[in-house]
């Protein structure tokens, strides 16, 4: 209840410490980062075919298991969002308890 209400930050709201990182907002930078991540993922996948590593279970010892399984899992979890949204999403006031009013 005593949590303060938002108040404007100084200097157009940009924090001095954030200044060096404002490039992150550029879409080019984001694309580069995205590409880097995909690249690293592929390198890590590739590495798996060259080293022999110990796995906890049989399936884990298959080369590339973790990278591929991680990719698929993530994609599955995200994509399942579509049917779930269709099934379970309702209006914000579904239960008749508006969150920010005090009545």
């Amino acid at each position: 209840m005593t949590d303060k209400t938002p108040r404007p930050a100084p200097e157009n709201g940009i924090h001095p410490l954030a200044r060096p990182f404002l490039w992150l907002d550029k879409s080019f930078a984001r694309d580069v980062i995205s590409l880097c991540i995909v690249l690293i993922a592929m390198i890590l996948l590739a590495v798996d075919f060259f080293v022999h590593r110990h796995g906890e279970t049989a399936i884990a010892e298959r080369p590339g298991f973790f990278a591929i399984f991680g990719f698929i899992s993530f994609a599955f979890a995200v994509l399942m969002g579509w049917p779930l949204r269709a099934l379970l999403m309702r209006g914000p006031d579904y239960y008749g308890e508006s969150e920010d009013s005090d009545a």
Partner: peptide
């Protein structure tokens, strides 16, 4: 290594 593979594989999916 496997942890990085998992995390980056997943992050790649996000991207």
């Amino acid at each position: 290594l496997t942890q990085y593979q998992l995390l980056f594989g997943a992050t790649a999916a996000f991207v």
